[in-house]
Design a protein around this nucleic acid. Structure first.
Lengths: 137, 137
DNA sequence: TTCTGTGCAAAGCCTTTGCACTGGG
DNA sequence: CCCAGTGCAAAGGCTTTGCACAGAA
């Protein structure tokens, strides 16, 4: 599982800096387009294609978490935890909690073993309404 | 959770029959386009838009299982089990095992409760290489 | 100077939609 | 006969790509 390949050289640019800043400004998962809008709203300007390319690169480098929502859209969020984990996401406001639960990992492997599967990976995300949004009705 | 709404009237048509037949012919998850190709390969002809509309309808009616793969594509499969469940899917040949594990359900609810989330739902799929494909190298 | 990064516009892909025709009941 | 269902083509929405220019090192 170790990607022996060293990450390619990465230059420090205005676009990357702005994208990192924007990611750091929130705990929520953002789409490429959503992030682009936030940047634009700040009066800054970065090409949408660059946002897509950069988020993809950050994801490859493990600098951001990413997942695909129910609509098939990719969402990205600054990486808080390094180890493998899952998310509990408020489907209303997007607030996210990271879940580092070893039980799930072992469950996944156990089930896979039982069926003779190897190279197991899994996609596990929980959605709900967070307490704040719940209060607001 | 009961969808009190009675399903709208559904007519028996050639397209629906062909789509059902094709779904029944395999245990694997199929994309709309993949299913359309299978139908075409049988020398039959159904509009692609109809396949999309029909699969969506079957999904709404609970007649098929569906999920979104890592590429964001919707996949459909004939429904084997009625109760809520998850899947263990071979990422090579698409063979699928249904998992009816109550432990996961209770885990999800427990975690959500701990964080004050309500209306919990979850997206859980396992991917791996099945024993047959593993043997083939 | 060199080569990565960026912007823009075009193209790709999966999916949905509008509209007129077809066919099930 | 009537309305759900279908086909086709166009449009949508997210994402990727080609290419020439800009800017980091």
């Amino acid at each position: 599982m170790s990607d022996g390949v060293a990450p390619p050289s990465r230059r420090a640019t205005r676009a990357r800096s702005l994208i990192r800043q924007t990611l750091d400004s929130t705990d929520k998962f953002l789409s490429a387009q959503g992030l682009h809008e936030l940047i634009t709203a700040q009066g800054e300007d970065v090409g949408l294609a660059t946002v897509y390319r950069t988020l993809q690169m950050f994801a490859d480098d493990g600098e951001v978490d990413f997942l695909r929502d129910d609509d098939g859209e990719m969402l990205y969020r600054k990486c808080v935890r390094n180890a493998h984990h899952h998310h509990l996401i408020c489907r209303r406001c997007g607030t996210t909690h990271e879940l580092a639960d070893t039980m799930i990992e072992s469950w996944a492997h156990q089930v896979a073993d039982q069926h003779g599967y190897s190279d197991v990976s899994h996609s596990i995300e929980l959605y709900g309404t967070c307490s704040d949004c719940g209060r607001l009705g």
